[in-house]
Lab assay of single mutants.
Amino acid sequence: MIVFVRFNSSHGFPVEVDSDTSIFQLKEVVAKRQGVPADQLRVIFAGKELRNDWTVQNCDLDQQSIVHIVQRPWRKGQEMNATGGDDPRNAAGGCEREPQSLTRVDLSSSVLPGDSVGLAVILHTDSRKDSPPAGSPAGRSIYNSFYVYCKGPCQRVQPGKLRVQCSTCRQATLTLTQGPSCWDDVLIPNRMSGECQSPHCPGTSAEFFFKCGAHPTSDKETSVALHLIATNSRNITCITCTDVRSPVLVFQCNSRHVICLDCFHLYCVTRLNDRQFVHDPQLGYSLPCVAGCPNSLIKELHHFRILGEEQYNRYQQYGAEECVLQMGGVLCPRPGCGAGLLPEPDQRKVTCEGGNGLGCGFAFCRECKEAYHEGECSAVFEASGTTTQAYRVDERAAEQARWEAASKETIKKTTKPCPRCHVPVEKNGGCMHMKCPQPQCRLEWCWNCGCEWNRVCMGDHWFDV
C-alpha cells in the first residue's frame, strides 16, 4: 500500500509500505531520502505521535493516508518512550493509558441525555464484534464512529474520518494533550489543546475536521460531520418502519427517538411537499423529531443533505422563500418566477423588478396576487391545505425507538455506581478489583462488596467470576 509523507509540512511524497511495516522502518526510509538522522524524526498522525514499535496496521493507516513527519531533536526523557523501550505506560498493571487514536474515538455516547454525564468515556458498548469485510486488514473493525456528507465523488452519507490540525499553522502536526470525549470537544473551536510539532510553531489549540472515509482524499478535501447519525450498535428499532437498520439518525429530543435514513428521507420529502418545515429565527429551515417532541429541531442543517441534490435544492429554495415571508415580504405569483420581494408595508401595487435578471417585471396586487387592478379585489380565496398535519407515529413504536432507553438498560445490566462519587462504572470481565475512572475520584473498590478495596476482598473473592 501507499502512504503519503509530508516532511516538515512540505509537499508530500509517496512511500510504499506493508501492513506489518513498523513506524521506525518508515522513519528509516524517510531519513534516507531526506539525509537526516532517523532518531530525530517524529511521525504524527490523527493528533498522535506514533511509536517506533507500532506497525502501519496498528495505527489504522489506510491506503493513501497522509502522515506528517517532522525533524525535531529529542528532548530529555522522550527518546526512550518513542523507541518502544522502557515506557512506564506499558508496564503490566499500570494505570496510565495511551491517548486514544482519533481513528478509534467514539462519540456516540454523547447523544445520551444530559443526566448521563461521564458515560462518553466510561461506558463502552460490546456491539462492535462484526466481522471485518472481505479485503480489510485482519482485526480491523467495521464499526463506524462518525458519518459525514461527502460532496465529492460519493454525493451521499458516508463513514467519516476525524482529523485534527494546529489552529495556528493549519498543519496536521499537532499532538493532542488528551483525546475528545464528546461532540462539544470536536465542534467547539479551541476547546481542546495540544502541542504543535512543526518547527518554530508555538500553536497549542486544536482544530478538528472530518474527511470522507470511503475514498482517498487530499489535504484540502473536508466534509461536514453529521453528528446525529450513528451506527445502530444498540439495535434500536426505527420509529417509523420498526426495522432494525444501521446507520440511524438520533433526534435530540428527551427520548432520543431513532429513525433509519430511508424513513428520514421520506419524512423530509413529505414535509417538504406540504411546505411544513419549521422556520426558526436562529436555526433556519428545519424539522423536529418525527414524533413531534418539543425542543427537538435539527440544529445542523447539513443533515438535510440526505435528501439528495434535487430535493436539497428545493429545500434551500423553500427556506429562502419562507425567510422572505417571515420578513413581511411577498413572492411573485407569476408561474416560473417566484422571486422574493420586500415592498413597503402599505404598498398595494407590487412590481417584480426586472433588474439584474432576477425579476420578471410582472405587476400584481398584494392582496389577491392577481395582475394589478384598481378598486376592490374580486375574490380572495383562503389558501387550502395549509394546516399542519401531524406525522403519524405509532405510540408503541415510539416507545421502542428510544436510544436513551437502550442506554439505561445497558447501564443497569453492566454497571454499578462507584461507592464514593456514584458514577456508573462498567465491568466487562476481569477481577473484582475496580478503579473509578473519574479523575477527581480514582477510588479503588470491590465490585462484589461495593466497598473500598481491602485485604478481605483480596483474599476471599479477588478473582471470582
Results as ranks from 00 to 15, higher is better:
residue 165 Q to M: 13
residue 429 G to Q: 15
residue 317 Q to M: 12
residue 349 K to G: 06
residue 325 L to K: 05
residue 206 A to H: 01
residue 168 T to N: 09
residue 304 F to Q: 01
residue 77 G to P: 13
residue 209 F to L: 14
residue 143 Y to G: 06
residue 199 P to Y: 06
residue 333 P to N: 03
residue 325 L to V: 07
residue 430 G to A: 15
residue 263 C to F: 00
residue 250 V to W: 01
residue 159 P to I: 10
residue 430 G to K: 15
residue 110 S to H: 09
residue 460 D to K: 06
residue 9 S to D: 06
residue 423 V to W: 13
residue 140 R to Q: 10
residue 113 P to W: 06
residue 437 P to R: 06
residue 453 W to G: 01
residue 239 I to C: 06
residue 130 D to R: 09
residue 23 I to R: 00
residue 91 A to T: 10
residue 306 I to Y: 03
residue 404 E to V: 08
residue 365 C to G: 03
residue 9 S to F: 04
residue 74 W to D: 11
residue 221 E to V: 07
residue 204 T to S: 10
residue 199 P to L: 10
residue 378 S to N: 15
residue 337 C to Y: 02
residue 454 N to C: 05
residue 423 V to E: 15
residue 206 A to D: 00
residue 451 C to H: 15
residue 84 G to N: 10
residue 79 E to L: 13
residue 155 Q to L: 07
residue 361 G to L: 07
residue 397 A to H: 09
residue 32 K to T: 10
residue 206 A to K: 00
residue 222 T to I: 09
residue 446 C to K: 01
residue 35 G to N: 12
residue 104 R to E: 11
residue 314 R to M: 03
residue 170 R to A: 10
residue 214 A to Y: 07
residue 433 H to R: 04
residue 265 H to Y: 14
residue 410 T to L: 07
residue 110 S to V: 07
residue 242 T to D: 15
residue 208 F to V: 06
residue 133 P to A: 11
residue 261 L to R: 01
residue 358 L to W: 08
residue 375 G to M: 06
residue 416 K to A: 07
residue 135 G to C: 11
residue 319 G to F: 06
residue 3 V to C: 05
residue 183 W to C: 01
residue 393 V to Q: 06
residue 311 Q to V: 05
residue 249 L to V: 08
residue 124 H to R: 10
residue 407 S to T: 13
residue 402 R to K: 13
residue 406 A to L: 09
residue 55 T to H: 05
residue 106 D to R: 07
residue 279 H to S: 08
residue 262 D to F: 03
residue 286 S to E: 00
residue 425 V to L: 10
residue 404 E to Q: 08
residue 348 R to A: 08
residue 196 C to Q: 00
residue 68 H to P: 01
residue 237 T to S: 14
residue 350 V to S: 03
residue 416 K to L: 07
residue 435 K to L: 06
residue 367 E to K: 13
residue 215 H to F: 01
residue 241 C to L: 01
residue 105 V to K: 14
residue 411 I to C: 08
residue 254 N to G: 10
residue 173 T to G: 08
residue 82 A to L: 14
residue 453 W to H: 00
residue 373 H to K: 03
residue 71 Q to L: 05
residue 58 N to R: 12
residue 20 D to G: 08
residue 16 E to L: 05
residue 22 S to T: 14
residue 247 P to G: 01
residue 170 R to T: 06
residue 84 G to R: 10
residue 276 Q to C: 12
residue 35 G to A: 07
residue 335 P to N: 09
residue 377 C to M: 02
residue 291 A to N: 11
residue 459 G to W: 03
residue 95 C to S: 13
residue 359 G to F: 14
residue 427 K to V: 08
residue 236 I to S: 06
residue 87 D to N: 08
residue 353 E to A: 08
residue 403 W to E: 02
residue 353 E to W: 06
residue 100 Q to H: 11
residue 251 F to T: 02
residue 201 C to D: 00
residue 167 S to Y: 06
residue 179 G to R: 06
residue 336 G to I: 06
residue 266 L to Q: 05
residue 235 N to I: 03
residue 158 Q to P: 00
residue 276 Q to G: 13
residue 137 P to M: 12
residue 456 V to G: 15
residue 406 A to T: 14
residue 150 C to K: 02
residue 21 T to G: 06
residue 186 V to Y: 01
residue 223 S to Y: 07
